[in-house]
Amino acid sequence: MSEIADKVKKIVVEHLGVEESKVTPDASFIDDLGADSLDTVELVMAFEEAFNVEIPEDAAEKIATVKDAIDYIEAQKAA
């Protein structure tokens, strides 16, 4: 697992208070990890802070799963 993936997972565990084993790449924040719409806003903010990236609102709306988040951040970091 990449360093980014590892860090994303940690943030998700911390903010949503879920078991680490449940944070799989395909896990949906809302459907599988018990987040509501405000939780996802907070999660995106935490990603922005941790990775020093800007995630605009239209991009944030498309981040539904753990993998979506990792992919988006990796793309930003590669650019």
Partner: peptide
């Protein structure tokens, strides 16, 4: 300001 928690108001 953009880092304000979405839970601030509630």
């Amino acid at each position: 300001a953009k880092r304000l928690s979405p839970f601030f108001i509630p």
